[in-house]
Design a protein around this nucleic acid. Structure first.
Length: 654
RNA sequence: GCCGGCGUGGCGCAGCCCGGUAGCGCAACCGACUUGUAAUCGGUAGGCCGUCGGUUCGAAUCCGACCGCCGGCCCCA
């Protein structure tokens, strides 16, 4: 993200000891330093250096520099809030990705209007050029100074490895930062630092939004009011960030879904439950068709399973014990006759059903690896506050497969699987990936250590062999096995978790899965869960945002729109359209009463890849004129050639 | 689930603070126009103001509950 020009480092020589890090850097000609690194530690520029120290500049635009300036901005925020709303208690205020926040316990929640007033007050504080001044205190002193700040007192008590408190009390000693307006202490906060020299040194900041957050992230704790802001090393950098956010908003799949008439979430159906309109339906079908074809080629067997099941199945799998919260409440059947009745559940996962297919008869080592694939629709009772368009729905369809293989086959299977996954994602237009390897939690796990070790090592080898960046996620595995997940970056640099490849040491045992080996013994198969899209809905949303609605021609709901110059040319274009339709192209001719210019605008807004225009000039030459989405034109193209050109682009999935 | 914001024709919004017969743009429909690369003109129709309840002579407007959406938090098997 950041690109510091160069790292300046200065050796402190005789005669320089006793000066500040800032002075040393300035004398060396360094201008861009938010803070300094001295002996490996980040320090205020006011830090007094010693003979032999090496002082390194930390530029504003570096990740560390940004974190410092954002943290300083958070202090200014807290100061502004306490000036405007005396009696507001402080939580914590760390820098985060792209900004900062500060948590408060105000006497009443903040309103959007408050945000403007707070921002104005912050600007005042910035203009006053208040100095951030560090001071070491002992615990008794800190407790006395913070007697009115119960949350801060709690942090002093923690002062250990508590992560979320690290910006306040992370160091070996307790420190306070005073904001000095001249000699007067305008405000102070318990803080590890470091900070910019003065409030005036914050180059650009703005407040974003308010939100609620639990104290120390725990639902059992009081709820605080959080204010989010962003701050950058320059006005330009901030502007670029805000522009990116606007762009993200424009390509929000919920917005594009409505604008392009792809899908909707009718209130009458329920929260988190999408319906696909004809245009969205086409895109979805094409996505599925291609995936099916690739799965066929890769040796998958296609299965189908019901949406509901008796509870017994999820007793066996364990889902009812562990994940009851995520399952829709049961429908009780057959209770009227006075019997106990039977509970039926909507399935939250497909794997138990697939296990039943595996177990339906004796299995031989000769049929392994057995790969069972299904576009399986599942329902999960997501909490009302987390439902989010198509990326977090309550009903969705997974491109789900379960692979049963021997331990000896595991490595080859995982290797080809990862390749399969990446190739397929690339076919849909995503090409910037990294992998995440989630490994065993130290306490929550089933299966033998030896099995975990072998599986983890295998996953790691397979992942490394792919040549992609591999990010470790220690302790991130589900209790039943380690996994690799594929993260993809989209067109505007956001990352999405796409595919997961997960080993399972739990279900084969719970379902007593076995196959007969060559030596006649019965063995437990290795089970691999894998989904490439994750869910079709979510993948749809990711692609929609990635392409900002302008799907490549092979996926576009309408691939070609014919635009007659006058209504006299309708018939001519209908004939051209018929020829395209014969080739399987999705084409429409706009024969509405609108003028040609308006039709172009309409087609442009619906992001159709090809517009074909025809007027007298084209008709006389047996030709059409192209207009593409980027506004470029290619006029007078013979109809035969135009058809061939479009067909080729679609066939090549461009 | 928690905190805050919001809910007005298909979509985007105004009206709400200061109760008194619901308005604009786009889309739709009808008509005229027949025009070479992002909005032709004119007309028509469409809303029990999310739902239920309360206050009031009278509620889109004030109050409450519920449903839904948005932003975060927690969660994401």
């Amino acid at each position: 993200m950041s690109a510091p020009a160069a790292v300046f480092s200065v050796d402190v020589g005789p005669g320089q000891a006793g000066r500040t890090a800032g002075e040393v850097l300035r004398e060396a000609g360094v201008r861009d330093a938010a803070v300094a690194r001295v002996g490996g530690e980040l320090r205020d520029l006011a830090y007094v250096v010693a003979d032999g120290d090496v002082v390194e500049a930390v530029p504003y635009g570096s990740d560390e520099g940004r974190a410092v300036l954002r943290h300083s901005a958070a202090h200014v925020l807290a100061q502004a809030v306490q000036e405007l709303f005396p009696g507001t208690r402080l939580g914590i205020g760390p820098p985060v990705k792209d900004g900062f926040y500060y948590d408060f316990a105000p006497e009443r929640p903040f309103t959007p209007d408050d945000l403007g007033a707070i921002e104005k007050k912050m600007s005042e504080i910035v203009r006053q050029r208040q100095r951030f001044s560090r001071r070491v205190v002992d615990e008794a002193q800190a407790r006395q100074e913070l007697a009115d700040e119960p949350f801060k007192l709690e942090l002093i008590g923690l002062k250990g490895p508590a992560d979320e408190a690290s910006v306040e009390v992370g160091g070996a000693e307790l420190t306070m930062y005073d904001n000095l307006r001249g000699d007067e202490v305008a405000w102070k906060d318990l803080c590890r630092g470091p900070h910019l020299p003065t409030t005036r040194d914050i180059p650009a900041f703005t407040l974003m939004r308010t939100a609620a957050a639990y104290w120390r992230g725990d639902q059992a704790n009081p709820s605080l009011q959080r204010i989010y802001g962003t701050a950058w090393e320059s006005k330009e950098a901030q502007k670029a960030h805000l522009t990116m956010l606007e762009e993200a908003e424009k390509r929000d799949h919920r917005r594009l879904g409505a604008e392009l008439d792809l899908f909707s979430f009718p209130d009458e159906v329920g929260s988190g439950l999408a319906v696909f309109h004809p245009k969205g339906g086409v895109v979805r079908r094409v996505m599925e068709d291609y995936s099916r074809r690739k799965h066929e080629e890769a040796g998958y067997s296609f299965v189908n399973t019901p949406h509901i099941t008796k509870g017994q199945l999820f007793e066996t799998s364990g889902h009812l014990q562990w994940y009851a919260d995520g399952i829709y409440p049961p429908m009780q059947l057959d209770a009227a006759a006075g019997g106990q009745g039977v509970d039926y559940y909507l399935k939250p996962m497909n794997c138990p059903m697939h296990n039943l297919i595996f177990r339906a008869r004796g299995r031989s080592y000769r049929e392994l690896p057995l790969r069972l694939f299904e576009f399986g629709t599942v329902y999960r009772y997501e909490k009302s506050g987390v439902v989010h368009g198509m990326t977090r729905a309550r009903g969705f369809t997974q491109d789900d497969a379960h692979i049963y293989c021997t331990r000896a086959q595991m490595k080859d299977e995982l290797t080809s699987l990862l390749q399969f996954v990446l190739d397929l994602l690339r076919d849909y237009g995503l090409d910037d990936f990294y992998l995440e390897l989630s490994t065993k939690d130290s306490v929550k796990y089933v299966g033998s250590d030896e099995a975990w070790e072998e599986a983890t090592r295998t996953l790691e080898e397979v992942a490394s062999a792919s040549g992609l960046e591999l990010v470790p996620d220690p302790g991130g595995a589900a209790f039943y096995g380690p996994k690799i997940s594929v993260q993809a970056r989209d067109a505007i640099g956001r990352t999405w978790q796409m595919s997961t490849i997960q080993l399972d040491f739990n279900l084969p045992e719970r379902f007593a899965l076995e196959y007969q080996a060559a030596d006649g013994t019965r063995q437990e198969p290795v089970m691999i869960h894998r989904a490439l899209f994750g869910s079709i809905e979510r993948f749809f949303a990711v692609l929609l945002e990635h392409y900002a609605g302008a799907f490549p021609a092979w996926l576009a709901p309408v691939q070609v729109v014919g635009i007659p110059i006058t209504s006299e040319h309708d018939g001519y274009l209908q004939n051209v359209a018929a020829r395209l339709r014969e080739q399987g192209i999705r084409v429409e001719v706009d024969t509405s009463d609108d003028r040609m210019q308006k039709k172009i605008r309409t087609a442009q807004k619906s992001k159709v890849p090809f517009m074909l225009l025809a007027g007298d000039d084209d008709v006389s030459k047996e030709a059409v004129s192209f207009r593409l989405r980027d506004g470029s034109q290619d006029n007078g193209v013979p109809v035969d050639e135009a058809v061939a050109r479009i067909v080729q682009v679609v066939r090549e999935r461009r």
